[in-house]
Nucleic acid binder design. Sequence first.
RNA 1: GCGAGUAUAGCUCAGUUGGUUAGAGCGCCUGACUGUGACUCAGGAGGUCGCCGGUUCAAGCCCGGUUAUUCGCCCCA
Length: 434
Amino acid sequence: MSQKFQAPRGTNDIIPAPFQKDPIFEIHRWQFVEAQFLLNAWNYGYQEVRTPMFEDIELFIRSSGEASEVVNKEMYDFYDKGERHIALKPEGTAPVMRAFLEHGMGNLGTPNRLCYINHSFRYGRPGKGRYRQLHQLGMEIVGSASPFADAEIITATHDFFSRVGIDSARVMINCIGDFTARSKFSEAILDHISSYLSDQDTETRAKLERNPVRLLDTKESPLRAALQGLAPITDFISDESKANFDQVQAELTDSEIPFTIDPMIVRGLDYYNDTVFEFIDDDLEGLSLCGGGRYDALIEQIGGKPTPAAGVGIGLERLLLTLEQKQLKLEAPQIDSFIVAATEGARSQVRQLAAELRANDISCVIDIDDRNIKQQFKSADRTNAIYSLILGDDELKMNTVTIKNMATQEQHSIKQTELLDWLASSLVQDEDDE
RNA sequence: GCGAGUAUAGCUCAGUUGGUUAGAGCGCCUGACUGUGACUCAGGAGGUCGCCGGUUCAAGCCCGGUUAUUCGCCCCA
């Protein structure tokens, strides 16, 4: 392979199925999942927002927290020609909240329900389910402190997953309380693992001490062992947080969403408080499908008045990876027809018929390279057309068109005037069969 | 950012202890078939062996570097 250029490290081309060897990056899968996401979000009243691909880096430092790994070392940043310090967005929530403030969205009544589909960028080492350019589907509910908001986000996420065929994802929830609770908890953690810490070099120790809560979901077994017997964070949270958490659970139970309380769930971004959650699936080993929770302090941190909010970010690549692991069939859509010019004299009628079909939303492809009939059928096959429509001298004489079902090879002729009706009803039938 | 593996035709991969013109299957093109694709048969095209350098009479194979990719760690979507 002497090709000079390739997609940058950790990025992927999302292209039609026949060309893509990794099914996860077949375009029709993305189109399907995104369409289902928007439909589902719409059912809950969430409106799409599209924010720029880059922002002032300060937005992310303020919102995600300087200590967070994402800001600390995974930001894709640069200075533009105007000396502005820019970051490609590492996550979707902060930009949406920035837009929320910039356009005064809270001033026409709350809560606001917003959703997005976007690129995110993280300068990490790429691997399975980890990319430098990744895609997230997100929903945010802004302006409500109600535990019903938390439950709604989780329920909507659950509905979306079952819509695309994932019923096995487990909902893991936790309550991490407010800032005060977390700092008390942090002290308790450091205290609990003090003997483990004293065995570490200064660099590691500094890293651990910077954000002890993050240690909880570590996979390092000595550290895991050291954490054994630690009192759960729920011992440190306020009565109010506790009551809210109970309410969230009650609502999920009412909505028949099975969930598990996992006291080890923390989140990578510092802006969360109280309810946090993840969806995990056994087919996606070690990686979470999505993560979210409540972030009451975020909007204030980026310069707005205190506004409670909750949301979710879903990893699109991971979702598709899960679908692939489950071997869920997701066929590429087929072109309705390919019109074959059986004789040279039929070429102009073929173009006319094509125009007529397209005007009626029946997709069709025709030969534009003077290929012979054999090659045209080959093209029809490659186009993945459902029907070949054949026009030649015989058909023109009789005002008919010959229809060939490419899958069954069945072939018959009908009057040209009946073609549209015939196609309309046959194509609908095909859709129903799926 | 750290550790390990991989890189040969469009795709999936063979390639012996270094030895002359680097192979297979699938795909692609042409014909058998002058109004029929996916099946069958016959023929054909396609590779500076990821890139750069080194060792050697000789490198796809050995050594160093580099880039990409996979897996694990860190972290997260």
